[in-house]
């Protein structure tokens, strides 16, 4: 693995983490997830239809000398990206559920105790 390839790998991992963080506050996280899937699915399809051209060009793009290394590279990047997105999604869901619990509990106390809002 060349220094260029290591740099690309590091940049891709940081980028995917940053994107998951940035998009977490919006619904764009779903779009990001779909984009990732579409990107990797397209890559897989191309590698089946045009194995030589795809694998060679992808390997060159990533700076990886052996074709098999590029597959491992992509597999690791894919796994990490999906992990980041899912983790961020879980955190967001967790926040929403907890906010809901707060809201429900406050509504209930008003009903039960008959405390009048000011």
């Amino acid at each position: 693995m060349s220094i260029y390839a290591k740099f690309v790998f590091f940049a891709v991992v940081v980028l995917s983490y940053s994107l998951s963080y940035v998009f977490a506050k919006t619904n764009s996280i779903k779009a990001l997830e779909k984009l990732l899937i579409i990107f990797y699915a397209t890559l897989l399809l191309l590698s089946v239809l045009f194995p030589e051209a795809t694998v060679v060009s992808v390997s060159q793009l990533l700076g990886v000398s052996r074709y098999t290394d590029s597959l491992l590279f992509l597999f690791i990047v894919l796994s990490l990206s999906i992990n980041f997105v899912l983790t961020r999604k879980v955190v967001e869901m967790d926040q929403r559920i907890k906010s809901l619990v707060q809201h429900i509990s406050l509504t209930r106390v008003t009903e039960r105790n008959g405390l009048t809002p000011k």
Binding site: K98, V101, Q102, I104, S105, L106, V109, N113
Partner: peptide
């Protein structure tokens, strides 16, 4: 006087509920 959360959400969440009340 009690406010009850149906699930555990953490101390920060509880204080948030208390302050909102």
């Amino acid at each position: 006087d009690t406010i009850s959360h149906c699930i555990n959400i953490g101390q920060g969440g509880s204080l948030g509920t208390g302050l909102a009340f």
